[in-house]
Amino acid sequence: MFAYIVRRIAQSFIVLLAVSLICFAIFQFMGDPVLTLAGRYATQAQQDQVRKTLGLDRPFYTQYFSFIANAIRGDFGLSYVTQVPVLRLIFERLPASIELAITAMFLSLFLGITLGVVSSLKPHSLGSRVIMTGSLFGISLPTFLVGILLILVLAVSLRALPPFGRGRVIKVIGNWRTGFVTIDGLRHLILPALTLGMYQLAVLLRLTRGGMLEALQEDYTRTAWAKGLSQRIVMFKHALRNVLIPVVTIAGLQMGELIAFSIVTESIFQWPGSGNLLLTSIYETDHPVIVAYVMITALIVLTINIFIDILYGILNPKISYD
């Protein structure tokens, strides 16, 4: 197990290096930031000056190695546009993103698995059909449309919930301001979290239901029924436990999608998170921010994937990592 984890971490490290190289190479050859920064009417001398100050006149490999050396120390350079250290810029906005992502993840896991189990109990009942139709819409609606429709109905027509922003936040420690503890903050969280979690909710629901229907036909479930165990024990201890393995895997694999969709969600709800920052940086060709965002995202996704693999081993004793 230990050897496996070490190997996985080593692999992830190689992937990170590859990602950084690709990112760096792409930005090296595409879209000259000097033109953006020095302004369209800058003279050649002014442009050279800007290029020199930013170190963009050095050869590619020198720039890459100094980038890596700095990145390891947590220094991703200054944003071209705001001249603020990139990492600080991202970390300032990360808490908002994490709070949103965690709430959405929790919503989709909890509701997805619960509704999936409920609809597998009596698969042909009216309730199950309603749930399944709903889930079909859930996977057929792009995230941005879910968000817009929720705003249109709940915020504009019914005026039930606020359509944008984070509401009242309270400072916890350092940069961490949370919206979890004020009622206003929680009210602002509902629509974005629903938007972000909707697709995954539908996917997990369908997966759980499919798995449960299959598991309930298996011999071990029949044996459990025959032993006279209660429905609750059979459903949760025998059937659901086996179903959870693919569900957890898919939930983990979709972490990357969750981050991508959070960019869309944050843009719609003007959520002051890192996804919104990325989008602004893309519009403004702010390369250091984009590179740092991609690297941090890669780090998060790879770390979660390792954890999922370990969790997989705990959930399924048949798997051993040797």
């Binding site: 992937v15 590859a18 990602v19 792409i26 930005f27 595409m30 879209g31 694999l253 979709q254 990357g256 999608e257 981050i259 991508a260 969709f261 960019i263 869309v264 893309i282 984009i290 991609v294 995202t297 890669a298 996704v301 790879l302 994937n305």
Partner: peptide, 21 residues
């Protein structure tokens, strides 16, 4: 493929289009 797969299609397409405008 694994490397590609750990990132989302959406994010990758978004970044590519953000770079090659």
């Amino acid at each position: 493929a694994d490397t590609f797969f750990s990132f989302s299609t959406t994010l990758m397409a978004m970044l590519l289009l953000g770079i090659f405008k």
